[in-house]
Amino acid sequence: MLILECPYCGVKGEETEFHGGGEAHLKRFGPGSDDDQFHDYLFSRVNPKGVHLERWRHVNGCGKWFHAARDTMTLEVFGTYSAQVFEPPQDIKDKISAKRPGWQWREFS
């Protein structure tokens, strides 16, 4: 079972209180972008075995969106963090590095 802690209300709840929102830190390519960029923005998602950064929403709780860094194989959650960032904060990166040295996810490591 996946246990997540909402960074907004502090609830440590199990998966059914939350709802997954897909891959984190997507950059929107809209008007002015080329077809390849728009295609990747719409359809290209990583599907890693191991470290993954995702968006989640505390749907049956405070209702807020947040980010989570977790392992897709072990369901270990390295940490959750604010939705108002474009990349994982340093303390989250450090927590991942402590458990999974040399990890890489998209352009982050």
Binding site: Y8, C9, G10, V11, C62, G63, K64
Partner: peptide, 20 residues
């Protein structure tokens, strides 16, 4: 956060989310 307070007249004010 995640608390509820009560007034003398029985009114209650509850923390719903960071802005509610």
């Amino acid at each position: 956060v995640r608390k509820i307070t009560v007034a003398d007249n029985g009114n209650r004010l509850a923390w719903m989310s960071p802005d509610e």
